[in-house]
């Protein structure tokens, strides 16, 4: 395999990116969408760890810094989990470039934390054969998150949080009333794309990885409404390794397990897509 560090034109600026091409013609491409993690590697350390094993499977890949992060110039003062349009533009730019450079359209996507929101949207693309989402942000952002965000520094909130009694009497009932419990529309929409793609969610027990039993329950309910063949394309792995959103700090063995799981899911997705195509090719040749 060969890696190429590049600057991809993006609006009036560029995105710093690294493209990895396997030896020979690639069978597909993988776009890596990181979260808000800050690592010395372009893209993220996880993305750079995936590049080699993917290339061994004949898959080209691309990793990139979001506009305004790392070596990508730009002015971004913050990130909103609900406003993904600019990040989706970045990911689509990376995707279009790797498709052109590897001369293949079929693709899969990998996302971590915030990046999973972008990957859920990429699943809508009919050329997408699969996705792996690590530490996925599953819940809809509603009043509870907005309150936490807006008032978390207020002294009265600090007082309530510091007292066990007040937490029980005030916080818990409020959370029960306005707290998020359902998977986000974006997630449910992704589940509905399984007619053409596989989706693996790798969920850890860590709070910072957005672990949420109600969201997982909601996801399971959504799965049961799918046709039987599509149900098998959604795979939720709950793992002890983590936090996945800070992959680079995980022990080496845990990193290796995670990389293996991501690669296995992606290879399965491409295998299935190729198997789907084979009868069509046979008919065309016949």
């Amino acid at each position: 395999m060969t890696e190429y560090p590049l600057f991809l034109p993006f609006n009036d600026s560029v995105l710093s990116a690294v493209v990895t091409l396997p030896d020979g013609q690639a069978r597909g491409v993988v776009v890596n969408v990181t979260g808000t993690v800050l690592t010395s590697n372009v893209g993220s350390y996880l993305c750079s760890r995936l590049a080699g094993p993917l290339a061994e499977q004949g898959l080209a890949s691309i990793r990139f810094d979001f506009s305004g992060a790392g070596d990508s110039p730009g002015l971004i003062e913050g990130v909103g989990l609900d406003s993904i349009d600019w990040a989706l533009d970045c990911a689509n730019t990376a995707l279009e470039n790797i498709q052109e450079l590897a001369a293949v359209d079929r693709f899969a996507a990998v996302g971590t934390c915030y990046g999973t929101r972008i990957v859920f949207r990429l699943l809508r693309n009919p050329l997408c054969v699969g996705a792996v989402c690590l530490a996925p942000v599953l819940l809809e952002t509603r009043a509870w998150s907005r309150m936490r965000s807006r008032y978390h520094k207020r002294s009265v909130i600090a007082l309530v949080k510091s007292s066990r009694v007040l937490r029980l009497v005030v916080l818990k009932p409020v959370k029960r009333l306005v707290g998020e419990r359902k998977p986000a529309t974006l997630v449910l929409d992704a589940v509905n794309q399984l007619d053409h793609a596989r989706l693996r969610l790798i969920v850890s027990h860590f709070l910072r990885d957005h672990y949420s039993p109600p969201a997982l329950k909601g996801l399971e309910e959504a799965r049961t409404k799918l046709p039987a063949d599509e149900q098998g394309r959604l795979d939720v792995q709950i793992v002890d390794d983590g936090p996945l959103s800070t992959f680079e700090f995980m022990p080496r063995e845990a990193q290796d397990r995670t990389v293996a799981s991501v690669v296995e899911a992606l290879v399965a997705a491409f295998d299935e897509a190729e198997a789907r195509d084979e009868p069509e090719v046979a008919v065309a040749l016949g």
């Binding site: 003062e77 990130v79 909103g80 989990l81 942000v137 907005r146 936490r148 965000s149 978390h152």
Partner: peptide, 9 residues
């Protein structure tokens, strides 16, 4: 910094 849904640089 900040809590979801917004993170401030």
């Amino acid at each position: 910094t900040g809590t979801p849904p917004s993170k401030i640089d």
